[in-house]
Amino acid sequence: MNYTNAKKTIATFLILYAFVGFGAHATSVSTEDAYPFFSWFLFVTVPPRIQSGFDIMLVSVDGERLETPVHLLDRPDVFSSEGVTERELSEITQRFAHSIRGKRHEQISELRRMLEVHFSTHASYAVREYSYDPLEYFKNKKVSSSIILAEFLVGK
């Protein structure tokens, strides 16, 4: 390949790469995949100033209501995390919350079964949606507001 043709080839390749990469993003933002091409649209959206999340809080143990609900993982004497990683628990929590909001009762039952097998005693728990400023949450885990989506008694 001579110098002049090499220039044309490189130009064509760069344009083609950009075209395919951008095209992959334009046609499927969430599952963009045109392996091995890529749009390089990484971290393109600035996260919002108010964000929301879900968690599961322990509300009562052996019939006694807790003064302040606590995260399941903060009570290993009640909830055993053996066999479930934090990431898996987080995924279960997300699915649980969305199932409650979508009133998908079968999925709710299935997720309850997956979760309640880890309880070692009689307890009740709540699925909570909370809003927070990510900067404040990072500094001191401060939550702006929260609502209980649903409360469940283990085994019932």
């Binding site: 490189i10 390749f13 760069l14 950009a18």
Partner: peptide
């Protein structure tokens, strides 16, 4: 020139990332 082509590709990917950020901005 081919060496430059490798440079240009490397820099192209950063430009594509920058275009993405500006677009969504």
């Amino acid at each position: 020139l081919v060496f430059w082509g490798a440079q240009a590709f490397l820099l192209l990917t950063y430009t594509m990332a920058g275009i993405g950020k500006l677009t969504y901005a």
